[in-house]
Nucleic acid binder design. Structure first.
Lengths: 262, 262
DNA sequence: TACATACGTCTCTTGTAAGAGACAATTTCT
DNA sequence: AGAAATTGTCTCTTACAAGAGACGTATGTA
């Protein structure tokens, strides 16, 4: 337990040590489960969200009773519950864009054979909202709901179109600018990319998240200039110039079809 | 709507006026949005869950910040947010039964042309977890996640198999026994139905929820005798005897395929 | 123009839930 | 076997969130 208290990495910019509101703890618990993507023991959960054990037990019990969490398998592990699934479906039902977007993404990946994704900004973070795997032998797997730094992606450049520089700086941390391969992106370059993406109406990045793929993205608009989401294709980096531009055309067409702007 | 746990300590009934825990308020808010199935103003929301306005504003703000809720359209209405969708997808991903069940239900309704559903017990209530519409002209629409009294359904009879009588009585209120057409079911009859359903391995009800349909259901087992879910078909009440029994055969087959018991 | 309702924000008080920690019962090591 | 760590439950204290309500500002409607 000694090593537990030594939190050199403490991302707690907040008042660490002070009492926390139950609701906040719950939100952290949910977020934690979302990142772990698996059932977890309550003790570990308490450690994971850095909350007192007794509190965690109480909160988890409430959540399990409410059906937001479920005790998994052996009995002392918990994970997301049916209620959350139901609420999620409610969200989909009430959200035309998402419903149609999922459809289009599925179509697109079936037609092209490439991995296709629908991406959105989720509380200042890039989020893969839905993805449909391509038919290629090597899988490019990126879990739905995964949080990836905005500067690593083509979609990120489109999603930030129209934001003021200050807002962008808020959303992008120093770490976000360091690419997976260690290279460092200049914030000014990134902002230039954003403006270029906005002007051209699409964006292509090569070898950013990994060395073998390039990412094609097109914006889905919910109003003039307002980027609500992006559709993107993840293709092998050696995809020919012709095929790439043909895919971009298709992608832009489909994204436009989703747009409400008109 | 309340937790209504069986082991009520003091059970002050409504306890209107007493202070409520923030988390509980939140749970009520989510449940309320689930029943309304639409974005709602914060004032109305406060009324709906019978919470003070100021409290509701605070809680909603937290939830919106966290992404569990989103402000819809005009700006002063809220509904479920993307986060809940993502958590819901996590649930699906971690839940083989649900994932495969959705698939089977979709197949089944496509093959038969009838409305097909996957149902589960959700904190003591019957819940349609996934449904796929049939191809019939008149739509038999029952929203996913809808809460219907157990005695009104064929699935309800299967889902309660193996429960002690006392538990069943807990789960079924007096009101639940009154059918939509006003008829009143006897609890003893209902319990007899349950036992029969368990013995025969399927259940058929005619004209219970409405006068035009009958409901065929088969259990999905997660262990010997443990009913984890049901698959059901909603067909016109005048479906021929032969077709009905052929559908039941198909249904039982598919449900068995989902079962882990073996 | 007044009159009534709804909205969003703020302040202050007090009831109460978050948290520390003790406990017995497992489980997992040596 | 004994030691060490984990689990689930319980009690008690006090820091703090829930709630009442006032306030200024939209709206709508007589």
């Amino acid at each position: 337990m000694q090593d537990g208290s030594a939190l050199a990495v403490s991302a707690d910019e907040k008042t660490s040590g002070s009492r926390e509101k139950g609701l906040n703890r719950v939100l952290e618990i949910l977020e934690f489960l979302h990142t772990t993507q698996r059932a977890i023991g309550i003790g570990d959960l308490a450690k994971g969200v850095n909350a007192p054990r007794s509190t965690t037990y109480t909160l988890v019990r409430s959540l399990v009773d409410a059906g937001l969490l479920e005790t998994a398998g052996d009995g002392n592990r918990v994970y997301f519950g049916k209620k959350l699934y139901l609420y999620g479906m409610d969200y989909v039902r009430g959200n035309d864009l998402l419903r149609r977007g999922r459809q289009e993404v599925d179509n697109l990946s079936r037609e092209t054979g490439e991995t296709s994704e629908l991406c959105m900004l989720q509380s200042g973070r890039y989020t893969i909202v839905h993805s449909s795997p391509g038919t290629r032998p090597f899988r490019i797997s990126s879990a739905t709901g995964l949080q990836i730094p905005l500067p690593w992606t083509a979609s990120g450049r489109l999603l930030l179109a129209g934001f003021e520089q200050a807002r962008i700086e808020d959303m992008v941390s120093e770490d976000d600018l360091i690419l997976p391969d260690g290279r460092r992106l200049l914030l000014s370059d990134f902002i230039a990319d954003i403006e270029k993406a906005e002007a051209t109406g699409y964006c292509v990045t090569s070898g950013l998240v990994d060395a073998y793929t390039k990412c094609l993205a097109a914006p889905v608009l919910s109003g003039p200039g307002k980027v609500e989401a992006t559709m993107c294709l993840v293709v092998p980096i050696d995809t020919s110039e012709e095929r790439t531009s043909s895919l971009i055309g298709l992608l832009r067409d489909r994204a436009a079809r989703l747009s409400i702007a008109g």
